[in-house]
Each structure stands twice: as C-alpha cells, then as structure tokens.
C-alpha cells in the first residue's frame, strides 16, 4: 500500500516537466526515505537523480520498498490535468499494475482521479559516490538558463571555466564565438540573485549544450542552480526543491577528438 499526499502538487508537475524530455521511461522508487528516481537518457550520456523526501509530504505511507515503472510522457499528460494549486495524492496497491493520481482543488470542491498503467522497466541503478569538486558555482537558475540558450544559438558545446576571475561560459560555431563571464557577486538585495564561486583549483570542461539546455527545464523548480565541476567527474547541475529534495543532472564532459 502506497499513499503519498503532496499539498504543493505543482512541485510534482514541475518535476515532470523538468525530466520528461530527457528520460522516456523510468522506475520511481518509493521507500521510507522518500520518492526517488534515477535514470539515464536514451543515449546514456546524462543521468538524472530525483529525491522528494518523505518529510516533505503531508502524508507519506509506503509499507514496503517498491519500484514502479512509468512512462514519463504519460505521467506528464496526467499531471497536466491537475491545477497548479491542487493537492496531489499518489496511490498504489500492492501487486497492482496501475497507479492512481488524485487531484484535489484547494477548496475541496473538485476531486479527480487518474489511473495510469505501470510498466516493467529493466534499468541499471548506478552508485553515485560523494565527491570533492574542483569548483562549485551557485548562481540564479534563470541566468544559467539564459546563458545556455544564448550560447546554443552560436555553437553546440559550452566550455565552462572557473578561475579566480570568475566563471566563464564560452562557445564557438560557424558564425563566430561567444564568451560570458560571471564574477562572484554576493552584494545583492536578495540571496537568490547572488553568484557564489567556490574554487579549490581552476577547472575547464566542455559540455554538449543540447543536454545543458535540457537540464534548464528544471528552472521553475528553484531560483538557484548549483554547478559542481571536477576534471575527473561528470558535472552536476543541481536544482533544489524547496524543503523536499532535489533534481540533479549528471553529464560527462566531451573530450577532444
């Protein structure tokens, strides 16, 4: 028996919009810790990890650890039928091949339930160790989204370089080249407008902009994004989900051919 009641149902809607273009089918895992997912994109270049902690739900009942295979496009279709202010409850019975999403309007005058077929998905679960990063950049998520969008009109890849001067996003393409430098800026009125750069050592890595642009679909989830870089590791692009958890995207760098 599974029953997860999320008062801020819009969070789940935003999570689906953030990941559905990257991942087609995925297993959602439910345990005492929370509702989570780990999945690779179809070309096995990027990995997404989602955690919605049990404490973030108004009611969280998960009698045993369960893994439920879902088509994210179908799940998104159903969640789009929930209002932005609706309370969403996810319900499942042991051994059932369906899951139910219940949507309640804030005034309780409309209650809808949508039943979705589950699917069997054979997926690898990867262990992601804690790591030390050469540099961690925390910046407004809308700014990061804007930079990725702007650079993708010039080139296909972005070089992200962190030095003591700041963080530089560079690209090059047939029509020319572009460089955008952000300096650390903590003297802003609101904390969510700050750019904070922690650098242990300089780092410079190249990534496919197509994937970076896909990650920025998570922008509505968080006003800030954290980009963790290390020369031996995939970049981690993390969007925290208020009080509940995170969506993290991992992308391996491109190497010189």
């Amino acid at each position: 028996m599974l029953e997860l009641r999320l008062v801020q149902g819009s969070l789940l809607k935003k999570v689906l919009e953030a990941i559905k273009d990257l991942v087609t089918d995925a297993n959602f895992d439910c345990s005492a810790t929370g509702f989570s997912l780990q999945a690779m994109d179809s070309s096995h270049v990027a990995l997404v990890a989602l955690l919605l902690r049990s404490e973030g739900f108004e009611h969280y009942r998960c009698d045993r650890n369960i893994s439920m295979g879902m088509n994210l496009n179908n799940m998104s279709k159903m969640l789009k039928c929930a209002g932005n202010d609706d309370i969403i409850t996810i319900k499942g019975d042991d051994g059932s091949d369906t899951i139910t999403f219940m949507f309640e309007s804030p005034t309780q005058d409309k209650i809808a339930d949508f039943e979705m077929k589950l699917m069997d998905i054979d997926s690898e679960h990867l262990g992601i160790p804690e790591a030390e990063y050469h540099a961690i950049v925390r910046m407004p998520s809308a700014e990061f989204s804007r930079i990725c969008k702007d650079l993708s009109s010039i080139g296909d890849t972005v070089v992200i370089s962190v030095t003591k001067e700041g963080v530089k996003f560079s690209t090059r393409g047939d029509i020319g080249a572009a460089n955008i430098v952000l300096r650390q800026n903590t003297t802003v009125d609101k904390p969510e407008e700050a750019t904070i750069i922690e650098m242990n050592e300089p780092v410079s890595l190249t990534f496919a902009l197509r994937y970076m642009n896909s990650f920025t679909k998570a922008t509505p989830l968080s006003s800030m994004v954290t980009i963790s870089l290390s020369s031996e590791l995939p970049v981690v692009v993390e969007y925290k989900i208020a009080e509940m958890g995170y969506v993290r995207f991992y992308l391996a760098p491109k190497i010189e051919e």
Binding site: M40, H44, V45, G127, A208, P234
Partner: peptide
C-alpha cells in the same frame, strides 16, 4: 556523438 563519454563510465552499478 563524437568525443562524448557515456555517463555510466563514471559510476559503478549498485
């Protein structure tokens, strides 16, 4: 996709 390292090259199966 030229020069792109697959992500599972970095993490071990758990």
């Amino acid at each position: 996709d030229g020069g792109q390292i697959p992500i599972h090259a970095f993490f071990v199966k758990s």
